[in-house]
Design a protein around this nucleic acid. Structure first.
Lengths: 112, 112
DNA sequence: CTTTATGCCTAAAATTCTTATGTATTAATT
DNA sequence: AATTAATACATAAGAATTTTAGGCATAAAG
């Protein structure tokens, strides 16, 4: 997941946001979508992704729908109502995080 | 450290950046400075801070200078040459992280 | 005189991610 | 034809970072 430790903690935000845009996605598709959107810069590893999806499902933020395509299983995930609400929170937290970091990194800005 | 998991992984960046601005700082001072700069939003816990400082020192990014003020010990930390170089890297990584996240969070932007 | 602030520290547990596998099918390459 | 790459899921050991929860000590404030 890039070589920067900053991405720690952002996986859930990424997953939730992608699902607001794509209605339903399966794990492998998420990894490909992220790679594509970031021009290969960000690589979501499956060892991180699948446990995260399972946890989000257990928490009731995601629902599952299993399909068989070309004789291969696909587990589609979609946001629940609760998931939609939590997505709003996560995106606000991201905005807040970015703002806070910019104050810390560029403290002069806040004095002008 | 706020209630957002996004701050995970940013502690080192914060420490290094503060030290480029303040020349030398001690642990407790760092916690207070961060609180002040973020209007209380970000609270660096000592359990996270001190081990991080010790690690940065062990890696040769920080140097120590111990002083006794009002009969209390203060361990001042300052950036080494290596520390200055690493700070540049960390700040670039932060910029890159923010950009990448904005693409993921607002993919429409990248198509216009 | 007891709490709050200053100032350092560590250690167990939780969290999140990496690394390394494992299974299985289909498509592409040699 | 046989092997590798791509698709698709999964888990488990270990590493790294942080939280939580303490501990020690001095100075100031209530």
């Amino acid at each position: 997941m890039a070589n920067s430790k900053l991405y720690k903690g952002s996986l859930v935000t990424i997953i939730l946001k992608l699902l607001t845009e794509n209605e339903k996605m399966y794990g492998y598709q998420i990894t490909q979508k992220v790679k594509q959107l970031t021009n290969g810069e960000l690589h979501i590893t499956e060892g991180a992704l699948y446990p995260a999806l399972h946890k989000l499902e257990a928490e009731g933020l995601l629902d599952i729908e299993v399909k068989k395509v070309d004789n291969r299983l696909r587990k589609y995930y979609k946001l629940t109502d609760k998931g939609n609400k939590e997505t709003v929170n996560k995106l606000q937290e991201l905005q807040s995080y970015i703002q806070t970091m910019q104050v810390l990194i560029n403290p002069k800005m806040s004095l002008e």
